Amino acid sequence: MAAPTPIHKSEEEWRAILSPEQFTILRQKGTEMKGTGEYNKFYEEGIYNCAGCGTPLYKSDTKFDSGCGWPAFFEGLPGAINCSPDPDGRRTEITCAACGGHLGHVFKGEGFKTPTDARHCVNSVSVKFIPANSPASL
């Protein structure tokens, strides 16, 4: 899959299309409270798109129950997610490759029995689920 086309908007344009909580998390690198996210314990078949720009990010078959309190995925769609060290160097931030929206953080080597031994810890507010049988997912 090719890298998504970059999406650039002003802060005012983002504020106009995102809820206040989405803006705080996607644009200001906030975090939703543990265990409160809509998709934390959600396991239907489909695709998780960026809530900011609609770019497909994760397939539902890469989601797993990590017990961390946020949705966990073991990998994103090729080219859809960028990884970069947090300023303190302790964690690795994950962002939408198209719009730069903050998704959460990725952790490796935790011993989960997944194909990548990685956990993308994602804020539910940062993604929008599209069911597999929805015209939007076809």
Rank of each mutant, 00 (worst) to 15 (best):
H8D: 04
E93N: 11
T24H: 14
R119C: 05
I81P: 02
T92C: 08
C50P: 03
C83M: 14
H120C: 04
Y58C: 03
F112V: 02
T92A: 04
I130W: 08
S126L: 13
G89K: 15
A2N: 12
F129V: 14
G109M: 10
L77F: 05
T62M: 10
K108M: 06
G89S: 12
Y39W: 09
G37S: 07
S10L: 09
K59C: 03
S19L: 13
G100F: 04
C121S: 05
D61P: 00
F42A: 02
P20D: 15
A80R: 13
P135W: 13
D86P: 02
P131Q: 13
D61N: 15
Y39R: 14
A51W: 01
T5G: 01
A98C: 01
A136W: 00
K113C: 00
K63P: 00
F112M: 08
S60R: 09
C96G: 07
N49R: 15
T36N: 11
E45G: 01
P6T: 08
A51G: 14
P115G: 05
G100Q: 14
V125P: 06
E38P: 00
L26Y: 04
G54I: 06
L57E: 12
A72T: 12
A136L: 13
P71H: 14
S126E: 01
T62Q: 08
F74W: 15
P71W: 10
K63N: 01
F73K: 05
G67R: 08
D86N: 10
F73T: 07
K59N: 14
R119N: 06
N133E: 15
I7F: 05
V106M: 07
E93F: 05
I81K: 01
A2M: 12
P87D: 13
E11V: 06
K9L: 15
K128G: 03
F74C: 13
K29L: 06
E75W: 00
E13I: 04
W70L: 07
I81Q: 04
V127D: 01
G52W: 02
V127K: 11
V106L: 05
N133A: 14
G30D: 07
E45N: 11
G76N: 08
E21Y: 01
C96W: 02
Q22G: 12
L77S: 03
T92M: 13
W14V: 09
S19Q: 11
G54D: 09
S137H: 08
F129P: 03
A2F: 10
E32G: 01
P87M: 10
F23V: 08
E13T: 04
S84W: 06
D117V: 10
I17E: 11
K9D: 04
F112R: 13
S60D: 00
G69S: 06
T116Y: 08
A72L: 06
T55M: 04
E32I: 03
R91M: 07
K41S: 14
P4N: 11
S126M: 10
L77V: 08
D65N: 15
A16C: 03
K41H: 15
T114D: 04
E110N: 08
C83R: 15
I81G: 02
V127Q: 09
I17Y: 04
V122W: 05
C99G: 02
T24L: 15
A16F: 04
E75R: 15
I7P: 00
V122Y: 06
T36M: 10
G67F: 07
E12P: 00
S10K: 12
R15S: 05
T114P: 04
C50G: 08
M33S: 09
G67L: 12
A98I: 05
